[in-house]
Each structure stands twice: as structure tokens, then as C-alpha cells.
Design a protein around this nucleic acid. Structure first.
Lengths: 223, 223
DNA sequence: TAGATTGTTAATCGATTAACAATC
DNA sequence: TAGATTGTTAATCGATTAACAATC
């Protein structure tokens, strides 16, 4: 695979900065990382490519191949050290740092997200939670969040250097919140509603569709 | 994305009906379907492969190629009819019918799921919502659900012909609920917790990892 | 018509797998 | 040592893409 090699062609500007990962590799590394994060919490010391394969549904040879492209992280006959593989992958994905995100919607979904460790586990810090419902303003949610007024949006995004906005709002509200986020300078939007959100080309929208995954899983059960 | 087929044993007979889709095709069709479902709700009549590409992040040529494998659904110069493409894909995915699912956990996440249209949109009917907390028993959730006692589990699964169990429980509880589901005969588990759930080979677990998707999206933003 | 968009081909790229030496 | 598991190669299969003719 080409991403393993330092580029041999004429353009090769391999000046210390690594090349961009292919989409598939980046996606798979993210999934390995998720498993490693949990394994670490469970106090697991080492993990084999076969165990990783069981949890991620990625072929074990593929996993070893992906990892060996970046170094010799494993120990033959033993497996990979959970702790060190975890930090290696974080380095590869450039996500060793903290990233600030803002969350919209303090309903059930918003509160579930705010209370979850998933984002924190991966270096995302929720710096603010917004809601348009005045009745919810000032309400305490999760460990350290208080519902804020929508009007503070631009200030928070600028002051806290926010790059990601998470939408946990009703479908009807998603587009308008997205517009405001784009306006305020956010470049990645994570959409938990099922709205089809439209944004300018420089902005990325990820729509999380649990039912789609389920549909897909079910196809293989039904056939 | 990349996903290993559950082991199928001796089944693979292509008995004149359609062949099994490849993993990639099934995954992509599911995503087209999600967009079409929304487009239909918005009253859109036709949709082009480029519009589908914008929303799904799948290459437009790929989309046309995927679809043309099953028939000539589009009209040159116009695009695809939303309504008819929607029903074609449902047919291809064998998900035109209704499927019964059970939901575990009546906390914020469980209530968010119960109140969402995502599952209903794709033909999944939540037939029961369980929780171990006695204080929540009998509580009304969403339109038509009442929190039931964990003890009713086996009866419900047998009587309602449930094939999918959805876990919206705390991480610590996930494995034990999964064990009970497997015991009761469920073959597809959808895990919203971040636990690493272990199941026998004939059972499929899908772990939904929003933060993983985000990590992945962010990689392309940061590089 | 003119512009748009599908359907399809051919070339390229990435994923998967078997196999196995190295080595813990 | 014996068993396990990584790292790696090579071959194959399937997915992806650019390009463009067909045609609405």
C-alpha cells in the first residue's frame, strides 16, 4: 500500500510531516482506538490482533498490516501493549490534544451526550451546552455544564476556540442551528438529528445514523 | 464501513432469488435509503446522484454504479424519482417489512431513542422498553411505550418475534444484559454503550460510536 | 436545441487472504 | 522448548474513480 512508503515519486515533499492517511485507514485506526480506550479502562495489559478483530469486525491481518505501516508496535507471541498502542494511534491520528466542542439541545439526547464519557475519552471537551427553551436556561446538566442562552454562541466559539458543533436538536431546528454555527466559524458539524443539513463546501457535516447501521446489520441477518 | 460478515455456515445457497449483496454495497444502499427517507419527508420529487453524493459522502459515480446494478432507475438529465428509488432500495435490502426490537434502559439515552423517528422510519418497531430500576417501572415513555420489568424479557422476545435488542444501558450493565438477550434468542445486538460486549459467534454486535466518527471527521479537518 | 445527468467502460487503487519466517 | 502471534510478501478479488457516450 502506498501510504506505508515514503513517497518515491517526483513530488515527494516528505519534510517531517506525515502524509495524509487514506480514508479507510483513518476510519479503521479510529475504531482500534475506541477498543483500546475501553480495554485500557478494563485494565487489560495486552491485546492481540485477533481480539481487536473480534471487536472491530476488521480482519486481523488487515489490522497487523495497518499498524505495521507506522512501526513495530507488537510483540510476537504476545500481542500489542494496550497503553502504548493507544498512544501511538492517537499520535498517528493527530488527536493527542484537546478539542473544544459545543453542544446544542438540552433534551434527552443532549443530556445523554453531555453525561457520556465517550467524548471525554477521545479528547473532546464540551465547553458549552445551548438551548433555545428559556425554561431550561441555567439548568445544571452532567458534571459541569449549565444550559446557556443561544445568544452567547458567537462569544463562546471565539473565546474557547471551538472547532466542532454537535447538534442534538429536533429535526426541524437542525438547519438553522447549523447555519448559525457556520456563521460563527465552526468547520465540523456533528448532526444527531435526521435532518439533511446543507452547508458550504468548506464545512463538513457528519450525520450519525444508528438506524442505518442497524438496517445494514439486519440485511446480513435476513439473508 | 469495513465489516466482516457473520459466519454463515452452510447456508449460502443462491436459489434463484437475488444474490447476497457485498458488504460495501449493502452499507451504501442503507445510507442512500436514509437520505431518500428524509428527502421524501421534505416533499422532494427527484434527486440526482450528485445530491446523494453531497449528503452521503459517497462518490457520485459509485452511486450510479451501485444503482445501475439493479436496474435503470434514473432518468438522464433529470435524476432519480425519490419515491420510487426509496421503494426499490427497500426491496433490494429486504427491509420492506416490519421488524420488532426491544430497548433496554429508560434513562436519557433510552428515552431519546424511544422518542426518535429514526427506527420507525426504517421499519423497526420498538415493542418493549425494559429497565431494572423499580422506580421507573410503569412510566410512560414516548408515544406508546411503558417501562416494563426485566423479568418479562423472555416472554416478550418469544411472543413478539424479536430479532434485535438495543442497549441503552450504562457501560457496566451492557455485558450482562447482552448475555440475557442471547440466552433469550436475540441474534442482533445494537450496543449504544461503550462497553466491549462479548457474544457467541452466531450473534452480531454493533457498537455505535459517535465519538469514533467524530475523531475520524476531525482527522481530515486537522490535516 | 442546450444543458444536465445517467449508465457504462477501462484503469487504478485498496482490501482481503494464505502463507510463513521471525521471535517472544 | 512448544505454542502463540507478529510482521511481511505475493496473489487475488472487489471497490473506486475518471471519462464520456447516450439520452432525457
Amino acid at each position: 500500500m502506498s501510504y506505508q512508503e515514503p513517497s518515491t515519486g517526483a513530488q515527494g515533499l516528505v519534510d517531517g510531516t506525515s502524509e495524509r492517511l487514506s480514508l479507510g485507514v483513518a476510519a479503521r485506526l479510529s475504531r482500534y482506538l475506541q477498543v483500546l480506550t475501553q480495554a485500557r479502562k478494563m485494565g487489560k495489559q495486552t491485546i492481540s490482533s485477533h481480539e481487536l478483530a473480534d471487536y472491530t469486525h476488521v480482519n486481523s491481518t488487515q489490522i497487523r498490516r495497518d499498524l505495521s505501516g507506522f512501526g513495530k508496535f507488537g510483540k510476537r507471541g504476545v500481542g500489542y501493549n494496550v497503553e502504548s498502542l493507544h498512544s501511538q494511534i492517537r499520535k498517528i491520528l493527530h488527536t493527542s490534544g484537546q478539542h473544544n466542542i459545543v453542544l446544542f439541545g438540552a433534551g434527552h439526547l443532549g443530556q445523554a451526550i453531555a453525561g457520556s464519557a465517550v467524548f471525554a475519552d477521545h479528547g473532546f471537551r464540551i465547553v458549552a451546552l445551548f438551548d433555545t427553551d428559556p425554561a431550561r436556561l441555567g439548568t445544571r446538566v452532567g458534571e459541569s455544564l449549565t444550559v446557556r442562552a443561544y445568544g452567547d454562541l458567537e462569544t463562546v466559539i471565539r473565546d474557547e476556540d471551538v472547532v466542532v458543533g454537535v447538534l442534538a436538536v429536533p429535526t426541524e431546528a437542525a438547519q438553522s442551528v447549523a447555519d448559525d454555527l457556520v456563521e460563527a466559524g465552526v468547520r465540523v458539524i456533528f448532526n444527531y438529528s435526521d435532518a439533511l443539513v446543507q452547508v458550504p463546501p468548506e464545512v463538513t457535516v457528519h450525520t450519525s445514523s444508528p438506524a442505518v447501521d442497524l438496517l445494514y446489520a439486519l440485511y446480513f441477518y435476513l439473508t
